[in-house]
Amino acid sequence: MTSRALILQCLQCALVFAGAPLLAGWVEQCRAWFGNRHGAGPLQPYRVLRKLWRKELVVAHAASWVFRTAPYLLVAAMIIAGSIVPLLAPIVPLAPAADAIALVGVFAFARMVSALAAMDIGTGFGSMGARREMLIGFLAEPALLMVLFTPALISHSTSLAVIVRQLTTTRLFLYPSMAFAASAYVMVLLAENARIPVDNPDTHLELTMIHGALHLEYAGRHLALMEWAGAIKLATYMAIGIALFLPWGMSATGSASGIALATGLLAVKMTAAGTALAAIETLLAKLRLFRVPEFLGTAFMVAVLGILVHFLLGT
């Protein structure tokens, strides 16, 4: 582990932390364009965060320390997740702390924390949001893990850094199983980030909310942190997808020029992925809540199919 790796790690943390709202803003902007609206510009999330920063902190009577520590824990968990995923080069020093399975675990931890925090207030909305979130969680988690198993089987390792190194160093190799994994991954990404076929991020009706209901009682800087955590989660999911399915262009050694190139490429890939996400959201309609198990069940089956194909074709 060299100082270069450390610098790289810091750079990545900063990039994930500071850049995540930009990605969220870009997705919103694209959705506005696709919906024939002007949109507020990709910088809007930063303005919202600044506004929330300054606002008074309002907390419900019944709230305990669980409610008040949750936003900090959530942001911390998301930053950890974001710094484990190889973003610019597969040599981050934090990578050994958690492999792909542990990464899924970190997301599960964050989900549990947010569900418990929502239940802490003791209103119907909060606990309803919590149970829906957990429902989606236990369905999406197996699918996500099956998605991650396919590259893990290809590279004989669950370490994301090893996987990415393996995928980038071999000659352009088309893994058929990865096609399955990729399509399942998109479905999981939509579900886990409260995106349209599963949850509507724009809704104002408490009874239809999933993710929103978890945030319902938060205000001021707590809410800012929750929003930020959501943005980092989206960015991390995008980063995982890019690392697994479009890893080309990452710097293998972490040289300065390589990193510069990788950063540029990452920006391009993220922009494209954000646009694609907005397009998917514009084209699809929200599913009824009890269609969601079907949606995620399909994602899971597709991912398992990827593993089967991997065994059959021996690649």
Partner: peptide
């Protein structure tokens, strides 16, 4: 594995995916 064989495999996988869909 030669490229066209990889492509055939990929197409086969897609074929199966469509069948499932």
């Amino acid at each position: 594995m030669p490229l066209f064989a990889q492509i055939t495999n990929l197409l086969a996988a897609l074929f199966l995916l469509v069948a499932f869909a």
